[in-house]
Design a protein around this nucleic acid. Structure first.
Lengths: 232, 232, 232, 232
DNA sequence: AATGAATGAGCCTTCATTCAT
DNA sequence: GATGAATGAAGGCTCATTCAT
C-alpha cells in the first residue's frame, strides 16, 4: 500500500525545482508551500527556516554529485587524458542542460554564482574544488605539467568557463553571447572539447617547438598525451 | 574656488559604486541617499525613480564603452585577424580587471548577467551586439568562414566566455574557479589569446587535413590567415 | 459559545464602514488595520491588497442589492406603471436614507460617483444598468413611448437625479441644497413621486393637446396610463 | 507694448482649469507649476500654499458668479415666475456644460460636492445660498406659496438636482444614468424646464382641485402664475 | 521676484517568520 | 504532524512644503 507523499518530501521536491530555476533569493516560501498545497508555516516547521530547506536540498544534491563525480573519475580511469577531458565536458554540459528530478546541483551552482548564499562555502568545498582538482589533474597530464602549474590552472579555467556558458540564463539569452542555440548538449560538448583540446595541443606543440629551438630536450616529468600526438 | 559636490552628483557617484558592486536589485534607495547624507526622496527628485538613476549611470557608462570599443577597432585596423583578436582580448580583459573611476560598465554588465533589469536591452543593443559582431567578423576571417557561420559563433562564444571569466565576482573568487589570480591583465589576456588562437588554428588545420584527405582543394572564398600559417 | 470575532471579519466590518463613509481612496490600510487592532499586513494577508478588501465588500453589498431590486420589481408586478414608479421611488429612497448594518451599497455608490475605482464597472453592470432598465421600462409605459426613447431616458434621469439627491453626503449637508431634512423617507419619496408623475402627466397632456390641435388622432401603439387619466 | 504674462497670473489660469477639471485633491502642485514652466516652489511663493492658490481662484470665481447671478435676476425682473425659472435653468445648465476661461465656478462646485475642501463654506455662503434663495423665491411665486415653504424647498431641490446631473463626470458617464448625451445644453435645459414646470403645474392643479373639492376658495396670499394658467 | 534643491511624513505592498491551536 | 492567522521590518514611491540663494 502506498502512502501519500509526506509534506516534507513534497516541499523538498518542489522547492528544489524552484531554487534550481530561479535561485534562493527569487523564490518565496509562499510559492514553495502553495505549490504543494501546504501552509506557509510548513517550511519553517520542517526546516527551521527558508535557508534550512535550501541547505537540505543543496546537501542532498552534493551527495549525489559526489557519487557522480566519483563515477565519472572511475569511468575515465585507465583511459588517456584526452578521453577523460572529453568525458568530463560531456557529462558536465549534459547535466547543465538537462533538468533531472532530484539532481539540480549544476543549476543550483549557477544560481550560487549569480547570487551567493551561505551555502556557497559548502558547495565550493565539496563540489567545486574536487571538480577543479580533477580537471587540473587531467589537463596537467594532457600538457605534461604538474597539476598546480599556472598554465594548467588557466587552461582549466578556460575549459570551465566555456562549460558554464552552456547554461542559458535569461540574461545570457537576451545578450545573445552564448553558443549556438540548438539545444543539443552533445554538439555543444563536442565544440568545447574540440576547441579546448585543439588549444592545448597547439600549446604543447609550441612549447616543444620553443624548446627544440633552444636545443632543449624532453626531460622526464609527466608524460603528455598531446605531446605524443603532436610529435607523431 | 570649488563648490561642494552637488547632491545629484554625489548620488550618481555613490549609486554607481553600489550598483556595480551588488547590482540594481540589491541596493536600496535608502542606502544610496543615506550614503551621501540625503533624504530618501532625493533619488526620486533627481531621477524620477530608482530605475531612472540606474539608467543614467548605465547610459553614461555605455557612452564611455562605445568610445572604447571604437578605439579598440581602430587599433586593430590594418592588421591581420590574428592581431585584431589579440588586441580585442587585451583591451577587453584590461578593462574588466582595471577599476576606473566613473566607469563601471564591465561590472554593471556582470550584474546584469546575474540579475537582469530593464536596462539590459539597451546594454545588449549598444554594447553586446556590436562587440559580438566585431568578434565574429574577426574570427570569421581567422577561420575563413562567413561571420554568421555556426562554428564561428561558437568560437566567438568560447573566446567571450573566457574573457568574461576574468572578472572576479565575489562568488567566483570564493569558488576558486577563475584564472590565476595575480592581477596581471596582460598575462591573462595572453593566455586567452594563446588558448583561443591555438584552438582555432587546430580547427583550421583539421579542416584542411580533412579536405585534403578527401582530395579536396582550397577554393577561393575568404582567405584564412590561420590556414595560411598552417599550410606554411 | 461565541468565539471572538475573527480579524478577517473585523476588517471587513470596519473597512466597510470607513469606505462607505469616505470612499476607497480616502481610507488607508493602516487606518483599517489599526481600527481593529491588527497589523498593517493583515489586509494583505486576508484580501491580497486594499482593492481586494474593497472588492469583497462591494460584491457582498451588490448581492444584497440584487435581492432588493428583485423584491422591488416583484412588489410592483401586476400593478400599473404609476404604482410601479411610486413603489420604486419609495424603496430606493428608503434604502438611501436608512442605514443598515452590513449594507452600505448606497453610500458606496455615492462614493463611487464622487471618486470612481475599478469596482465601478461591476457596480454599473450589476446595479445601475438593471435599475435604469427597469426605470425606463416603467416610464416608457407611463408615457406610452418605447423604453429607449430619448424623452423616456431623460425623464428617467430626472427621476433618478432626485432620488440620488436624497442621500445626504457631508458636502450636500453643508451646501443646504437638498430636500427638506426631516429624515422622513416616506415623505421624501412622496414628494419625488408627486413631482415626477405630475411632470410626466403634463408632458403626455401636452402631447395630446398638440396632436389634437393638429387634427391628429390617437393611433394605438403603447397605451399610456397617464394619457388615459389625462383624457378622462 | 505687451508684457509677458506674470507667473502669478499664469499659475492662476492654469490651476483654475486643472482644479475645475479634477478637483483640488487630484491636482498636484507640480502639475500646476510645470504646466506654466514655473518651479514647484512658485505656488507656495505666490500663494502661501496650495490651498491659498485654490482660495484665490475660488474667490475670483465667486465674485464673477455674484455679478452673473445679479444680472440673471435683473434680467428676469418684471417677467413672470415661469420665465424666470426657465431663464435660471438655461443659464445654469449652459454654465455647467460650457467651459469658459476664467469662470469655472460651476465645475469647481461640482468638485466641491464630490470632495469638499475648506473653501466649501465660502462657496455655500456666497453662491449656494443666494442661488437657492432665488430659486425658492421664483418657485414660491410659481406655486403661490411662501418661499420658505416646505413644498417650495423640495421643488427647488428637485429642480436643482436635475440641473446638477447635467454635468457629466467620469463616473456619471460610466454609470450611464445621466441625460441624453448629445451635448446640447439648450435641449437639456428645455427638458428640465418642461419636466419641472409640468410637475409644479400639476401640483398647483391638484392643490386647487383639492381646495375646490373642499369648497375652498383662493384667498389672497401670493399669486401663482401657474394657478392662473391652470384656471384659464 | 523666483527658483533649484531638498525634505519628511505618509502610503501600499512584500516577505520571512512566529504563535497558538 | 501541521496549520491558519498574524506580525514586523523593510522597500519603493508620492507629494506638499521648506530652505538658501
Amino acid at each position: 500500500m502506498t502512502v501519500a507523499p509526506l509534506t516534507r518530501d513534497q516541499l523538498l521536491g518542489h522547492a528544489a525545482e524552484l531554487f534550481a530555476e530561479r535561485g534562493f533569493h527569487k523564490v518565496t516560501v509562499r510559492e514553495i508551500s502553495d505549490g504543494v498545497g501546504a501552509n506557509v508555516a510548513a517550511v519553517n516547521y520542517h526546516f527551521g527556516d527558508k535557508l534550512g530547506l535550501y541547505r537540505e536540498i543543496v546537501e542532498g544534491n552534493i551527495a549525489l554529485m559526489e557519487e557522480t563525480m566519483q563515477k565519472a573519475m572511475d569511468a575515465g580511469r585507465g583511459g588517456d587524458a584526452d578521453g577523460q577531458l572529453r568525458a568530463f565536458i560531456e557529462v558536465f554540459v549534459e547535466r547543465l542542460l538537462t533538468p533531472r528530478d532530484g539532481n539540480q546541483i549544476q543549476r543550483l551552482m549557477m544560481r550560487e554564482m549569480e547570487n551567493p548564499t551561505p551555502m556557497l562555502d559548502v558547495i565550493v568545498e565539496r563540489v567545486m574544488e574536487p571538480r577543479m582538482r580533477y580537471l587540473c589533474d587531467v589537463i596537467g597530464r594532457l600538457l605534461g605539467r604538474p597539476s598546480d602549474d599556472r598554465v594548467v590552472r588557466n587552461c582549466a579555467a578556460s575549459v570551465h568557463a566555456q562549460c558554464i556558458m552552456c547554461k542559458r540564463t535569461p540574461a545570457l539569452v537576451r545578450m545573445n553571447i552564448g553558443f549556438d542555440d540548438d539545444g543539443d548538449a552533445a554538439a555543444l560538448a563536442d565544440h568545447i572539447a574540440e576547441f579546448s583540446l585543439g588549444a592545448m595541443a597547439s600549446m604543447v606543440g609550441k612549447t616543444m617547438a620553443q624548446r627544440e629551438a633552444r636545443g632543449g630536450r624532453e626531460v622526464g616529468s609527466a608524460k603528455s598525451s598531446l605531446k605524443a600526438a603532436a610529435s607523431a
